[in-house]
Each structure stands twice: as structure tokens, then as C-alpha cells.
């Protein structure tokens, strides 16, 4: 291949139908999308347009009705439940709209959790990596706190740290700022953007907030389950600078 950058995500003519009672509701209708390594890509569209469905398919938590989804070169339709789980664990980081931290674990333990699932790192290494990351997202002082003791913005920072702790190739974020006020939301996007630049991690996030999209290197617009446009904002993708 001539291309110096490979596609981390390759979505080919993907459709997804949901059954609502007896009615078949199409959520995606033939979407094709390539995401290159290091992109900071925003999926934009009104709610109900299929953003979340697309992210779920890319995140290997759901499988398409038609078409193929490749993540890191692997066709998700051919993988077992176990392999999909492994793929998520090692390749993908998730940031959720409502943070989804484990309430009974401390901030430190929440971030450490994926490393424990992966195994392989010594306790000291884990500690070093988790603390460095918490420092990087700006909540190094709250390592021992429980999620319940933190503000929404702080919680989402923890979630970002958790998504990045395994050094995944791809981070998926479904409406990461929807539950935050606009200033805090902007801070989170800045944080993600910063990490994208420094680490070259590919970010894929959905949003309907134009201010948030404006930080993206690429904006993909989606409506009624179909891709309706793809534009480069001119903002440099991660690792290019």
C-alpha cells in the first residue's frame, strides 16, 4: 500500500435494523466510513440520526445487520463474543455520555480496572501509569476519592483517563459533553484534543453541539441513518504536527 496511514476503522455499506415490536426500524442504511489512524473525528447529527448505533458497531458492542465493520483490520462479524471483548479491552477505549464509573471503586481503582482486566503489568507499573494519567487529565489530587464525591466534569476526566489507560488505538466517545455545562464540555474536548495530539490516539466522538464539532479534524455528518457529508476542518490530526 502506498498510503502511509492505514484505516483504524473501516465501515463498508453497513446497515443496522432494530426490531421494535414487529416493526423493523432501520437505524443505519448503508453507511461507509474510513477512519484513519490519529484522526480526531466528530460524528455530527441530530438525535435519532444513528450516531450512537454507528459508534456501537465500531465499538464492537453491537453487530451490523448488513455490511462489514473492520476495527484494526479485523472484521467484527467473524469474531466470537470473547474475541470481541478482547478487542474492546486491548484496542478501544470508551467514554460514555453519563461517565459510567464504578461507584464502589475509587477514582484510582476505576482507572486501574482495565489494566487489571488486561493483566501483565506489575502493581508498580500500573500505579505509575494510572497516576501519570490522572495528573495528565488534571485530577491527580482526587485519586482516592469515590466518583460520587466528584463533579460531572471531574468524573468525565476520570472516564477519559480510564479510556486511555490501556493506550488504545481508538477512543470512542458517545456525546461526551452532553451531560456537562458548555465550559466544562469545552475543557473535556480540549483534553481529548490534547491527548490526540500528543499520543496520536484516534478519537471518534459523536455530538450535536456545533461548538464541540468545531474542534474536530474531520466532521462526518449523519442524518436518517445515512452519511450526508464529510468535511475536513483544516485542523491538524493527531501525530501530524
Amino acid at each position: 500500500m502506498v498510503a502511509p496511514r492505514m484505516s483504524i476503522v473501516s465501515v463498508q455499506d453497513v446497515s443496522k435494523d432494530y426490531l421494535l415490536g414487529k416493526a423493523v426500524v432501520p437505524a443505519l442504511r448503508g453507511v461507509t466510513l474510513e477512519v484513519e489512524d490519529g484522526e480526531f473525528l466528530s460524528i455530527a447529527g441530530p438525535s435519532g440520526s444513528g450516531k450512537t448505533t454507528l459508534l456501537n458497531l465500531i465499538g464492537c458492542v453491537d453487530t451490523p445487520t448488513g455490511g462489514t465493520v473492520r476495527v484494526n483490520g479485523r472484521d467484527t462479524a467473524t469474531l466470537s463474543e470473547r474475541s470481541l471483548t478482547d478487542l474492546r479491552l486491548h484496542t478501544i477505549g470508551f467514554i460514555f455520555q453519563s461517565f459510567n464509573l464504578v461507584q464502589v471503586l475509587s477514582v484510582f481503582q476505576n482507572v486501574e480496572f482495565p489494566l487489571l482486566l488486561q493483566g501483565g503489568l506489575s502493581r508498580r507499573e500500573r500505579e505509575r501509569r494510572v497516576l501519570a494519567l490522572l495528573e495528565a487529565v488534571g485530577i491527580g489530587d482526587h485519586a482516592r476519592h469515590r466518583p460520587g464525591e466528584l463533579s460531572g466534569g471531574q468524573r468525565q476526566r476520570v472516564a477519559v483517563a480510564r479510556a486511555l489507560v490501556t493506550r488504545p488505538a481508538l477512543v470512542l466517545a458517545d456525546e461526551p459533553t452532553a451531560n456537562l455545562d458548555s465550559r466544562t464540555g469545552a475543557n473535556i474536548i480540549d483534553l481529548m484534543r490534547d491527548l490526540n495530539r500528543r499520543e496520536g490516539t484516534t478519537f471518534l466522538f459523536s455530538t450535536h453541539d456545533p461548538k464541540v464539532m468545531s474542534h474536530a479534524s474531520t466532521i462526518v455528518r449523519i442524518a436518517d441513518g445515512q452519511l450526508v457529508g464529510r468535511e475536513a476542518t483544516g485542523i491538524a490530526a493527531g501525530g501530524e504536527a
Partner: peptide, 14 residues
């Protein structure tokens, strides 16, 4: 459901 689903999403096996 949410906590367990999250764990599953971020890589915990069944």
C-alpha cells in the same frame, strides 16, 4: 445493569 454493562464494554469477559 449500567455498571456491569460498562465493565463488559471496557473489556470484562462474561
Amino acid at each position: 445493569v449500567k455498571e456491569l454493562g460498562t465493565m463488559r464494554a471496557i473489556g470484562a469477559q462474561r
